[in-house]
Every structure is written in structure tokens, then in C-alpha cells.
């Protein structure tokens, strides 16, 4: 036990003693008590108790016993000059409020660890009394950061639809904002975008996943629902890049992350609605 916790404990007992003294003083007709006077009385009370217990223990041990009897305490009373014949009347006359009983505080419960992965069983050559293997992420590499969601496309198309110099209307109504169609604007050198480097590629695995999902969605779509030509070109670029990276990282096929915090992203259908 550390010294601070011992101090804290004695402080608790001294607090209880001061509470008891306060209740005694209230019972005697006082309304308030000075801080100094209370501290003095606490000191006196503690001293009284320890002195009495020391004397009683001495008498107990003098008699060759380790279990104290009433007689030992009475001899202690006599030694300290306390008249114990008046106790009977005292407890009948004195009515002080009871203090609430001391409740031992329960230590806060440690929250359970979140388990991930499957624990490995001990190999046969290790005896069963040895400790088990820890959770796999404790000794096998686990990615701890989440890949940033690169969801610029839908936002970008929305932005373009609002700000592009030429937008068509799907229906012949006055309201342009309901179903805007971005007009195709071919760039001057059409091959330029494929030569420019792409930024924000954090993890090839993530990009691969994204591309897979998106290509699937693209395949499902009817040709009439296709977006602008620019987006199409971007897609092809991405796929090309992924293939390049794939050839580099082909030797590490374990791309399944067993971490509940890093679950795969779910694409909602509403997103597709926004794009189209």
C-alpha cells in the first residue's frame, strides 16, 4: 500500500471522528464549532482511544492472554482515571444521532477487452499448464488506422451540375435543379488526364476495393444512365494504376483485415441516386 492511500484512509477515519464529535456537541447544546476546536477534539479523541487501547493491551498481555477481556479494558479505564460506574446512566440519558455506517467503496470494474480474431491453441509440444496465446493482434500486425474515404466523386458531380457552364434538363420543366445533366466538355488534349499523377492514394488495397465496387455499379447501369465521359476516363486510369500496384504487391495476398473497428464501407443506394 502506498503512503498516500494510508493517508487517505486515516483521513476517512478522522472525518468520521469529527462527525461523531459534531453530533456530540450538537447533542450537548452547541450550534456551531470552531475549526480549531474541532481539530483539537479530534486529536484528543484519537489520542484517548489509542492510549486506552495501549493500556488495555498491556494489561491483557500481562495476564498472559492475547484475547482481551472486559477486565483488561476496565483496568485501562482505572489507569486513565475514568469512572465507568456512570456509563449506565450516560447511555440512558444521552441520545445522539447515529452516524451512517461506513460503506466500503467497491473498486471500479475493469471493462472487458474487445476480442478480435481467433485465439491460437497451444501446439502439442507446449504443456497445457503454460499460459495461452494472447489475442492475435497482440503479436501479429494489425492495421490500426482507417483509410480515409475518398468520396469526392458524388460531391464533385453535384458541384459540377450546379456550376458547369452548360447543363441540360432531363425533363422539360422550369426547375433546373431536380435532374440536371452535365454537358460533355472534352478537354483539349484528351490524353492529358491520364498522364497527370493522382494524389491521395493511401492504400492500394482500399483503392482496389473501391474500384471493384464502382466497376460493378457501372456494369449494372444502363448506358443511358452513364455519367460524363470524364468520369469514365478516370475509372480507366484508376484501374490501370491498380493493376500496376497489384503486380508490385502480389506477394502479400492476405488483404483481409479482421478488425471490427475497420469494417468494410457499406455503400448505400442513395449514393447512386445522387450520382445519376
Amino acid at each position: 500500500m502506498t503512503t498516500s492511500s494510508i493517508d487517505q484512509q486515516t483521513n476517512v477515519y478522522r472525518k468520521m471522528l469529527s462527525a461523531a464529535i459534531c453530533s456530540i456537541c450538537l447533542g450537548n447544546g452547541f450550534d456551531t464549532i470552531e475549526k480549531d476546536a474541532l481539530a483539537t477534539l479530534v486529536e484528543l479523541l484519537q489520542c484517548f482511544l489509542s492510549q486506552l487501547s495501549l493500556l488495555s493491551r498491556n494489561y491483557c498481555e500481562l495476564a498472559g492472554r492475547s484475547e482481551p477481556l472486559v477486565a483488561d479494558i476496565l483496568l485501562g479505564f482505572i489507569d486513565m482515571g475514568i469512572d465507568f460506574s456512570s456509563f449506565d446512566d450516560y447511555i440512558k440519558s444521552a441520545k445522539y444521532p447515529h452516524l451512517p455506517p461506513i460503506i466500503v467503496q467497491q473498486p471500479p470494474k475493469q471493462p472487458n477487452m474487445l476480442t478480435t480474431g481467433v485465439k491460437q491453441t497451444l501446439p502439442q509440444y507446449i504443456p497445457s499448464y503454460l499460459p495461452e496465446f494472447p489475442v492475435p493482434h497482440a503479436y501479429i500486425r494489425t492495421p490500426t488506422h482507417r483509410q480515409p474515404i475518398i468520396d469526392y466523386e458524388s460531391a464533385l458531380t453535384k458541384f459540377l451540375a450546379k456550376t458547369a457552364p452548360s447543363t441540360h434538363k432531363l425533363f422539360d420543366t422550369e426547375d433546373i435543379n431536380t435532374f440536371p445533366l452535365i454537358a460533355c466538355q472534352p478537354n483539349y488534349p484528351p490524353y492529358l488526364s491520364s498522364l497527370l499523377p493522382q494524389d491521395q492514394i493511401f492504400d492500394p488495397e482500399e483503392l482496389e476495393y473501391d474500384a471493384k465496387v464502382e466497376t460493378e455499379t457501372v456494369e449494372h447501369k444502363k448506358p443511358g444512365e452513364r455519367r460524363t465521359e470524364d468520369v469514365k476516363i478516370e475509372k480507366i486510369e484508376e484501374e490501370e494504376q491498380i493493376q500496376d500496384i497489384k503486380t508490385e504487391e502480389n506477394h502479400s495476398p492476405n488483404n483481409f483485415i479482421d478488425n471490427p473497428y475497420l469494417a468494410a464501407i457499406k455503400f448505400s443506394n442513395s449514393e447512386e441516386m445522387d450520382i445519376s
Partner: peptide, 9 residues
């Protein structure tokens, strides 16, 4: 002992 101390105070 508690009573003795209480009476003392």
C-alpha cells in the same frame, strides 16, 4: 470503549 470516548468528549 466507544462509550468511554463519547463520554469523555
Amino acid at each position: 470503549i466507544s462509550i468511554a470516548a463519547q463520554k469523555f468528549i
